[in-house]
């Protein structure tokens, strides 16, 4: 009998990475000003070697606007969708995700409070904001799960989602209130409700990269445990998974990663919900394949969503959350209907 492999194969990696890189190149080339592909290469080599092969205007667009933005979009999309995949596995619930569970808005509230009350660490601008976003993200998750558990010990899909949605609305109200009073100090409300990648810098991309490597790495290491949880918490316990430990590890990691993305890109909804679901249809529910596939799928999706946000009504730039929520909510409803009809929502 042929040996079975559960993990992602080299050819899978090649395909997914190629698609993602193609999306990246497309996103760098297209926009309010289109630049030819060869200029990307020239701009990068100019910057490294100090030559002048690329027109100065194109080099400025590529190096200080598009490239950092594309890096941030790819990393944010990857982070959000790997988080969504982990939550859906952990809670055995295809509708779980940072935004449906209220973690995202909780993290946004943390970031806003930090900005409003000046809780930045002096040497590391943004880190206080990031820490608060992570902390509030985690606290929201704990609060929602506790409330849901009190109502319904089996932690059923409907209870968690209902409480998550109510919690999100509640937190959004507080966010809007704080933003209204905080005025200039907090970037505009749209950033916190719809997200934006317009302020992307290489520094942001660097922070995201570190967060994705560290937290994404932890989630990836938990792939086997996530498989066990996805089949059922009782089953996970039976086969020897330390249920409490891994639940905590995964929840903390997911909240931290969502916290970082929110503090950099605002709240971008539905990526974490939709991408893992679509990916699951393609590569199956095994997290050893699902997590890497979601990673690249999420980055490709957010790159294209950002491209759409920049180009559909150009020169007007739409908030990226408008695009993701538009696609996301339609897919969300589709999932809900079809899983209900099959009888395992």
């Amino acid at each position: 009998m042929k040996k079975k492999t559960e993990s992602f194969r080299l050819t899978d990696y090649v395909i997914f990475i190629t698609v993602m890189l193609a999306a990246m190149v497309l996103c760098i080339c297209l926009g309010s000003v289109n630049v030819p592909i060869k200029d990307i290469y020239y701009a990068i080599s100019d910057t490294i070697r100090g030559t002048e092969l690329c027109p100065a205007s194109h080099r400025a667009i590529i190096m200080s606007v598009r490239l950092p933005r594309v890096c941030c979009a790819a990393l944010t999309g990857a982070a959000l969708s790997i988080c969504g995949a982990a939550m859906q596995g952990l809670l055995q619930n295809p509708l779980a995700d940072g935004s449906t569970l209220g973690v995202t808005s909780g993290a946004a509230l943390g970031a806003i409070l930090s900005i409003t009350f000046g809780m930045d660490l002096p040497m590391f601008a943004n880190l206080g904001q990031m820490g608060m976003a992570m902390l509030f993200g985690f606290m929201s998750l704990v609060l929602i799960l506790t409330l849901a558990y009190r109502l319904d010990k089996s932690l059923s899909t409907q209870t968690i989602i209902l409480i998550g949605v109510i919690f999100s609305m509640f937190v959004s109200a507080i966010i809007n209130l704080v933003v209204t009073f905080a005025g200039e100090r907090v970037k505009n409300i749209t950033f916190w409700s719809m997200g934006s990648l317009s302020g992307s810098s290489f520094e942001n991309a660097g922070i995201l990269l570190i967060a994705v490597i560290v937290f994404g790495g932890i989630i990836l290491r938990c792939a086997r445990e996530l498989n066990a949880f996805a089949i059922g918490e009782d089953n996970a316990r039976n086969i020897g998974v330390d249920v409490k430990k891994f639940k905590l590890i995964i929840l903390v990691t997911v909240s931290a990663l969502i916290g970082v993305t929110v503090s950099i890109a605002g709240t971008i909804g539905f990526v974490g919900l939709v991408i893992p679901h679509i990916t699951r249809l393609i590569v199956g529910p095994n997290h050893r394949r699902l997590l890497p596939a979601s990673f690249f799928g999420g980055s490709t999706f957010l790159l294209l969503a950002d491209l759409a946000a920049r180009t559909i009504l150009r020169p007007l730039v739409l908030p990226i959350g408008v695009v993701t929520s538009f696609i996301g909510s339609i897919v969300f409803i589709y999932i809900f209907y079809s899983s209900r009809r099959k009888g395992h929502a």
Partner: peptide
């Protein structure tokens, strides 16, 4: 209560 389409082999392997 199985929600996801794991294969029988994957289940047994766990």
């Amino acid at each position: 209560n199985v929600s996801y389409a794991f294969t029988v082999y994957e289940l047994i392997r766990l």
